[in-house]
Structures are given as structure tokens and as C-alpha cells.
Simulated scan of single mutants.
Amino acid sequence: MPFDLSAVPPLYLILPGLVILGALVRRVPVLGKVVSVVTWIALLGTLIVVVGERQRFDPYLSRIGRALSLDGQQVVGDEVRIRMAPDGHFWARATLGGVERRMLIDSGATVTALSPATAQAAGLDVREPLVPVLLRTANGTIRAQTATVERFALGNIAARNVEVVVSPGLGETDVIGMNLLSRLKSWRVEGRTLILVPHHPQKSTT
């Protein structure tokens, strides 16, 4: 995740101290101003962390994140531009089966993969394939079920009947693989930005 609340406990610990210190030094103009500026910076940092973790809180915070462009995804002309996250990966905001999810874009993955929770939320018909699907993961080889997403949307990109795999062994992360990327007109990385270009741009829904 771009922001991890557990990784920044000092921020919450120092805020009360800064407020108290500000009250004590308010009679010293210069020192008081310094403490005031530091306090506001700390408050702003807290706001950014909370909004960055918006998916763990309220969906209304997600709208704030979009308005502030904190999620790094924008539609520019016919292109979807996604900034690299602090973790070094590209994360897309996509909608499948009417459900919005934050998905990892992985060109090394052959097929798009969903967690069981996402598949259930999207109302997908998950089934056992006629031929067993075996996937190699960091924890070894796992068996997966399959499903079809009738409509997949990402910015101005729309794809229908996207085949996906579903397995508890894949963890909670949803992944966009090459079977979806290959449907695009082109895709490339420029600096720290991933650029996706569809054949037929649609009205952006995410």
C-alpha cells in the first residue's frame, strides 16, 4: 500500500506534544510560529496518510483522494496515466461487475487474477475448469478456479468477457495480467508513469 498507518506511529504521538508545546511558547513570537508551522505540517501529513488509506475507511474519502489526485490515476486525452506508487508498483483503480477495486498491474502475470472476496463481491460465477489450472506463486504451485468478468473498466478502457482466475492461495491482492493488457492498442512506461492506450476510448467511469 502507498501508505501504512502502522508505519507512522510517531506522527500521532507527537501531535499532542506539539499542541501542548505551542500553548506553552505562544508568548515567544518566533518560537511560537515555528511550532505552529511544524504542527500544521504534521496535521497535513496525517490527512494525507488517512486519505491514502481511504479504502480501509469510508468510500467518501475515496472521492477526496480522487479530487486531490492522490491515487495517481488520470485520463489524459485517449490515455490512462498511472503514476508509480511508493512501493515501486503500478496500481490501477478498476471496476468489475459494478465493484471498484485497487488492482496491481503486473506484466509478468499471464492472466488476470482475483481474490475470492473480490470475485464474490462482483457476483462472478466461479467454476472448476475442465482442465486444472495450476499457478506458480512464491508459496509454491496452487490450483485455481476460473470466472469471466462481463465488463471490466479502467479509466477510459472497457473490456468485455475477461477471463480471470480465482484462488485463496493468491492472497487478497487483485492483479491485472497480460490477457487484459494485450487487448490494448499499446502500453508503455515513461519514467515513473505507466501509459495505457485503448483501441476505442470510452467515457471514463473510474
Rank of each mutant, 00 (worst) to 15 (best):
Met1Leu: 12
Met1Thr: 02
Phe3Gln: 06
Asp4Leu: 10
Val8Cys: 05
Pro9His: 03
Tyr12Thr: 01
Tyr12Met: 08
Ile14Val: 15
Gly17Phe: 10
Ile20Leu: 14
Leu21Cys: 04
Leu21Phe: 11
Leu24Tyr: 04
Val25Lys: 02
Val28Ala: 09
Val28His: 07
Pro29Leu: 06
Pro29Asp: 05
Val30Asn: 02
Val30Trp: 13
Gly32Arg: 01
Ala42Ser: 05
Leu43Cys: 02
Leu44Ser: 01
Ile48Asp: 03
Val50Thr: 12
Val50Tyr: 02
Gln55Arg: 09
Phe57Ser: 05
Tyr60Val: 11
Ser62Asn: 10
Ser62Arg: 02
Leu68Thr: 00
Ser69Lys: 01
Ser69His: 05
Asp71Asn: 02
Gly72Ala: 02
Gln74Asn: 06
Val75Asp: 07
Val76Gly: 00
Gly77Tyr: 13
Glu79Arg: 10
Pro86Glu: 08
Gly88Ser: 04
His89Ser: 05
Phe90Asp: 01
Phe90Glu: 03
Gly97Val: 13
Met103Lys: 00
Leu104Val: 08
Ile105Pro: 02
Thr112Ser: 14
Ser115Val: 08
Pro116Trp: 15
Pro116Gln: 12
Ala117Ser: 13
Gln120Pro: 07
Ala121Val: 11
Leu124Asp: 07
Leu130Cys: 01
Pro132Ser: 06
Leu134Gln: 13
Leu134Thr: 13
Arg136Ile: 14
Arg136Met: 13
Ala138Cys: 11
Ala138Ile: 14
Asn139Glu: 13
Thr141Phe: 09
Arg143Phe: 15
Glu150Ser: 11
Leu154Gln: 05
Gly155Cys: 08
Gly155Met: 03
Ala159His: 11
Ala159Trp: 12
Asn161Phe: 07
Glu163Met: 09
Ser167Gly: 04
Leu180Met: 13
Leu180Asn: 08
Ser182Thr: 14
Ser182Gly: 09
Leu184Ala: 08
Lys185Phe: 11
Arg192Gln: 15
Leu194Cys: 06
Leu196Gly: 09
Pro198Tyr: 08
His200Arg: 14
Pro201His: 13
Ser204Ala: 15
Thr206Arg: 06
